[in-house]
Design a protein around this nucleic acid. Sequence first.
DNA 1: TCCTTTATCAAGTAAATACTTAAATAAAAA
DNA 2: TTTTTATTTAAGTATTTACTTGATAAAGGA
Lengths: 117, 117
Amino acid sequence: MPNDIFSALADPTRRNILEMLAGNDEFPASEIYDKFQVSPQAISQHLKILREANLVHVEKRAQQRIYRINTDAMVELEQWSKSMRHRWTRRLDAMEAVLKAEMKKNLKNQNEEEQSN
Amino acid sequence: MPNDIFSALADPTRRNILEMLAGNDEFPASEIYDKFQVSPQAISQHLKILREANLVHVEKRAQQRIYRINTDAMVELEQWSKSMRHRWTRRLDAMEAVLKAEMKKNLKNQNEEEQSN
DNA sequence: TCCTTTATCAAGTAAATACTTAAATAAAAA
DNA sequence: TTTTTATTTAAGTATTTACTTGATAAAGGA
């Protein structure tokens, strides 16, 4: 999974842009510019980073650039976190299995000792 | 969702630490230090950031600090990306519904015109 | 053609980040 | 108590980042 996605998401302004795009079909750059206090150039730079991270799609329409969210990148992020959780829980399950096996053995040994006494 | 999680995950070294922790039950800080080229102090600083983002748990054991991953934060991340996807797809579904309704209306109008002719 | 709209690129800057080495803390062992 | 082990904190620095203003590009309309 490319570094870029995580660094792109690290900035709160960029996450705001994505959340804005998630709720609507499409937005020309100018409408995105309008929603933020910072200069249009600053937002343009953020959009470039989002583009490079493949978090958004752009379509040229006359002078305008129409932005849309790319949910593929979201899926990637989701799978990364999921895989982390699963590796961890699989580890826990393995530990549990070992513990259970050990308990069984101990119980068995205890029984055998009691029988021989 | 706190900013901290995303910024914490933006650094590749910190993601490596998390991936290391995901595969094992627990690690004392020193074992984490050993796996990386950078100084133990640098890793210690990364661990602090992971702690503050609630991505890891720490347990004191004598002089050692035992680190474990906290999968709750992973779940949060997963839900954020999921909610983004769902908002987007819901939007698409709504658009589709509107399109279908319009097609139906057009077909109906067409039929009526044909009948009156 | 010239002007306007829409958007990006470029250069400069202040603040944040990831690293370094040196010093500090705190528990265990000698 | 002194020393060793494990880890963090502190201070300094080079690099990166997010912003600014000014210049540029590309399409549309007068």
